[in-house]
Design a binder for these strands. Structure first.
Length: 197
DNA sequence: GACCAGGCACATC
DNA sequence: GATGTGCATGGT
């Protein structure tokens, strides 16, 4: 199906911001929040780090959970500032394992958000397990349903070569599958049945 | 008006 | 360790 060009974002920093904003939120809403930040010239690590929380919260409002997401962004920005002096290029000399551990230590950054940042912002060979991933595996009876995050990612690590580019495309295709075809809970919902006919 | 969307932390048992 | 809950908007 050709390259999917993921993650949708113009810069590494934009990917990082989007990873937090999209927590339990549709990407459509996140796009509005990102557009607001860009309009205010705040899609920049140093400027956003120095911006007051109240204004950030107002701008990211469309993405929902705006107060808690503002706090999470602040926590993450604070880590990036103390660790890299807000220069993301400095992350290149840190091992993926260490980077992941540090990201997970930031309050508000869980496994999926950390892995999204690692893969899509830092190009590390990490497989992202999100609700799309789980849905596809579940529909193909590859999950019982009570597996933990690391247990699910293990399926991919044990089946695929460790390759960031491959993991990127693979996950993007899983998402495309979910969006273009019916991967809801039921085997085939009425709407998709009609579409098929 | 109900339900859902690319989570996470925290309280409680 | 497992389960429940708050966080909030916008689209269908």
């Amino acid at each position: 199906m050709g390259p999917q060009y993921w993650w949708p974002g113009e810069s590494r920093f934009e990917v990082i911001v989007g990873a937090v904003l999209t927590q339990n939120t549709s990407w459509k809403n996140v796009e509005k929040a990102i557009a607001n930040l860009k309009k205010s010239n705040l899609m920049n690590i140093k400027r956003l780090t120095n911006e007051n929380g109240k204004n950030i919260a107002t701008l990211i409002r469309p993405s929902g959970f705006y107060n808690i997401k503002t706090r999470r962004l602040k926590n993450l920005l604070n880590y990036l500032k103390t660790r890299f002096g807000s220069d993301l290029r400095k992350a290149s000399c840190i091992s993926t394992g260490v980077l992941r551990k540090e990201l997970l230590a930031v309050n508000g950054i869980g496994k999926e958000t950390a892995d999204s940042i690692l893969l899509y912002a830092f190009n590390r060979p990490v497989f992202v397990v999100d609700s799309y991933t789980k849905r596809v595996l579940a529909r193909h009876k590859m999950l019982r349903g009570d597996e933990e995050y690391d247990e699910i990612s293990k399926i991919f690590y044990e089946s695929l070569p460790e390759d960031a580019g491959l993991f990127n495309e693979y996950h993007a295709l899983i998402v495309r599958l979910c969006k273009e075809f019916c991967y809801a809970v039921e085997p085939l919902c009425g709407k998709c049945l009609l579409k098929k006919l």
